[in-house]
Write a protein that binds this DNA or RNA. Structure first.
Lengths: 200, 200
DNA sequence: ACCTGAACACCGTTCAAGT
DNA sequence: ACCTGAACACCGTTCAAGT
C-alpha cells in the first residue's frame, strides 16, 4: 500500500465530490460522512484530508455545484418568458421545482451551518448573489418609479419569501401536500407582492 | 450507586430539558449531545433514555417550549396594536426580534430534521398551526372579499415569506447586516403583499 | 425499581510510519 | 511523494449487572 498514484489530486477531488453527491441524494445531508465517501472511492479517510481541508470544505464544493445547476435552471427560464410579472413567476416555479426534485442537495445548500471559524469564501457568496441578481433583473422592468436600492431590497424580500415558503412546505410545516400547492402559494406571494410593489 | 431515587421521573425530565436548553443557547443545536445533558444534571447517559425515547424526543420538548414562548410574544403583540395592517407588521417584527434574540433555540425549531420513522406528534403540529392562526386572524379584517380558503392560503404565503427572510438573513445569505435591515425587509414584504391582497 | 457502566457501532480529524 | 492505519476524542443507543 501507500504511494499508489492511481489518481491525480484533481481526480481524487472530483471522485470524492461525485461520490459524496450520490450519498447526499440517497441518504440526505445527515447520511454523509467522510468514511462513507472514502470507501466509495476506494481510499482511506486520511486521503480525503489530503485533498480537502475538512468535511465542510467538501460540502462547500457540493453546494457550489448545486447552486450552479439551480442558477442554470433559473437563468434558462428567463429566456422564453412573457411579461415581467410572468418572468418572475417562472423564476419562482423553477425554484420550487428544483427544491422538490432534488430536496437533499437543495436543503444542504441552505441548511448546512459552517463552523464559526470557517469563512465562507467569496466565490461561494457570489453564487448566492448571482441568484438574487436574476430576481433583481426581473424586477427592473416593473420598477420605473423605484430607486436601485429599493429594487435590491425588493428582490431580497421577495426571494426570501419564496425561499421561506419552499422551506416550510418541504418540512411539512405549512399543512400543504404536494408541489402544486406550494406552487400556488408561491404564485400568491409573488403576484400580491408585485401588485403592491408597482401600485405605489 | 444505582437506585438513588433522588428525583422523580418528572423531575428528571424537567432537569434534562432545562439543561439541554442551556446547552443549545450557549453552543447551538450542533453542540447538544446526550452525554453533555447527562453530565449537566449529574446522571449517566443511560438515565436519559429512561425518561426520553431518544435525543429527538428531548429536542421535541425543547422546541415545544420555544414555540410556546414565541406564540406568547406574538399573541401579546396583538393586544395593543393599531389597525389590521399595523397588527400584522407587529407580528412580523416580534417574529424577527425573537429569532434574533434567541437564534439557537429558534433555529432548532425549524432546522432540526426528525428521523424519517419518527412521527411528529399532533400536539406539536398544533403549536405550529397556532402561530399561523394568529396571522390568519390578523388577515381577516382585511379580507372581506376573500373566502376562508384564500385567507388561509394568504397566511401561509405571507408567513412563509417572513420566515424565509428571517432564515436567509440570519444565515448571512441576504447580504444585510443587523436586525434593523431584516425588519425593513419584513416590512417591505408585508406591506406590499397586503396592498396586493386588499386591492383585488 | 432505579441507575450505572460498559459495550457497540458509529463519527471527524490527525499523523507517524510504511513503500 | 503518496497513502495507510491506527489513534484520539467524541457521538447515539442499549442493556446486563449491581444495589
Amino acid at each position: 500500500m501507500a504511494r499508489r498514484s492511481d489518481h491525480s489530486r484533481e481526480e481524487l477531488r472530483e471522485m470524492a465530490i461525485t461520490a459524496a453527491e450520490q450519498i447526499v441524494v440517497e441518504q440526505g445531508y445527515e447520511g454523509l460522512s467522510a468514511r462513507k465517501v472514502a470507501t466509495a472511492i476506494g481510499y482511506t479517510v486520511g486521503t480525503l484530508y489530503l485533498v480537502f481541508e475538512n468535511l465542510d470544505d467538501l460540502i462547500l464544493h457540493i453546494n457550489a455545484r448545486t447552486l450552479d445547476r439551480l442558477h442554470a435552471h433559473m437563468n434558462e427560464s428567463q429566456l422564453h418568458c412573457g411579461d415581467a410579472s410572468d418572468c418572475l413567476l417562472q423564476l419562482g416555479q423553477v425554484y420550487i421545482r428544483f427544491a422538490d426534485e432534488d430536496p437533499h442537495r437543495w436543503a444542504m445548500v441552505f441548511e448546512h451551518r459552517f463552523s464559526e471559524d470557517q469563512v465562507v469564501p467569496v466565490w461561494f457568496q457570489e453564487k448566492i448573489a448571482r441568484m438574487f441578481a436574476l430576481v433583481e433583473k426581473g424586477l427592473e422592468p416593473l420598477a420605473e418609479q423605484h430607486t436601485r436600492d429599493e429594487i435590491t431590497q425588493a428582490s431580497r424580500a421577495l426571494w426570501g419569501g419564496v425561499h421561506g415558503i419552499c422551506i416550510l412546505a418541504l418540512a411539512g410545516n405549512l399543512g400543504v401536500a404536494g408541489v402544486d400547492s406550494v406552487q400556488d402559494l408561491t404564485k400568491t406571494l409573488i403576484t400580491n407582492y408585485l401588485k403592491g410593489f408597482t401600485n405605489n
